[in-house]
Design a protein around this nucleic acid. Structure first.
Lengths: 233, 233
DNA sequence: GAGTGGTCTAGACCACTGT
DNA sequence: CAGTGGTCTAGACCACTCC
């Protein structure tokens, strides 16, 4: 065989992807080890490793020390989803962004919120409800609880001008977050706020962010009817 | 300063994350270059590069040649969520998986489908509707169009026993996909299939997969009411 | 024990881009 | 032009895990 001479990890990656997609390497099959591939491609093992690692991260390959690298039988493909800053998302579409605070108060959160944020029994939390508008039309309703023990400064902010969304991004770093998507039937309260029809199906994105073991904030973003959250593989 | 001696890229990453989260490096600020950090940490530049690259991929840092590395002003955090194999998702929760084919026919797809799949004017496509059940309860409804020009073999398969989901994963590789998440109000047809209440809000995951510039399949997965798709940051 | 992937190192050159 | 990140190389050692 003539030497292939693939010099960049991207070229190596594409060659490997080609062999997987063309079924030259079949699902479940063991592929050659890094050293052999490096020799075949005429490059360093490090380069092959980088390519294999990227593909494995996308779910198409499964790697285990000593056991080698296999083509995944059931590739669990991974999509990366960017969490948008709502203002940017709207302005990027050349629509006019506006923000309206609906309510802001210190309350005892309901049990479900306490559970999701792992809050102790009876403390209070800051409850903020606000609307984000695109071209003067309700775009998303932000319903948020903030752990005031973790971020006491938040009590000094009236979220009249700046959204809690943006303030927290800039002032309350987090180390991890849980996200879930679901759908909700529009109730009377939401219908009033969002100016939509009672009973409409609205997509919801819920997010809890943590700094270590301490919950920072829990937010439900309820989008207007018909909204789609996009991503790609 | 005493040498820090961080020896692995994970340690370097954690140290860097600490400096970002503690605001020792503030949003928008330029951080030292790789060579200086490598010297400070007492490791190779490659190791620092690996750590910085991972953080940049998560959205917390922005890197440009010559311009250097900055802490992101508005960190667009990226969540990766894995596209589940429905059977696995159900079985992983120790529930009994079942599959029922509802319909399978060669049809002229509606304009919206043709547009999303970039199909030529008047060809037909395979339309498959099926239910996935968990413990004998409808879990998700799969409504799928398959491009028979791209995958002619698909015409030989009656999807009576194996779901199109699994058959395609094993037989029709793709190079990229578009995904969108939204919500839909349960209509009569869905209510009958899914055994839910008319008017319920149901979460929908839509996916189009491509092999190069050719669309392979477009699928709408409509989940039962209350279902949540999880991921984490 | 031995084979595989995971990572580190030191040095080098290249690609991009701000000044 | 010069400074920065992006990558490649060759070699080395380690960590894990299958046999």
């Amino acid at each position: 065989m003539t030497a292939l001479a693939l010099n960049t990890w991207q070229e190596v990656r594409d060659e490997l992807l080609g062999r997987i997609n063309s079924r030259r390497w079949k699902p479940g099959e063991l592929i050659p080890n890094e050293a052999d591939l490096a020799e075949e491609f005429g490059c360093a093992r490090t380069t092959v490793n980088r390519a294999l690692r990227e593909i494995a991260e996308s779910g198409l390959l499964e790697r285990r020390r000593k056991a080698g690298t296999r083509v995944a039988l059931f590739p669990v493909r991974k999509a990366t989803f960017s969490i948008p800053i709502i203002r940017q998302e709207i302005e990027d579409r050349n629509e006019k962004y506006a923000y309206v605070l609906v309510s802001r108060s210190l309350e005892t959160p309901p049990a479900s919120v306490r559970a999701q944020m792992a809050l102790p029994g009876k403390g209070k939390a800051l409850h903020i409800v606000a609307l984000h508008l695109a071209n003067a039309t309700p775009y998303v309703c932000e319903d948020r609880w903030v752990n005031v023990d973790a971020i006491p400064e938040v009590l000094d902010i009236d979220f009249d001008q700046i959204s809690a969304n943006e303030w927290l991004i800039a002032h309350a770093p987090f180390t991890r977050g849980d996200i879930s998507f679901s759908a909700v039937k529009c109730d009377e309260e939401l219908a009033g706020r969002m100016n939509t029809v009672l009973g409409d199906a609205l997509p919801i994105l819920s997010r809890t962010t943590w700094n270590g073991e301490t919950a920072i904030t829990l937010v439900d973003l309820t989008f207007r009817a018909g909204h789609r959250l996009h991503t790609s593989l």
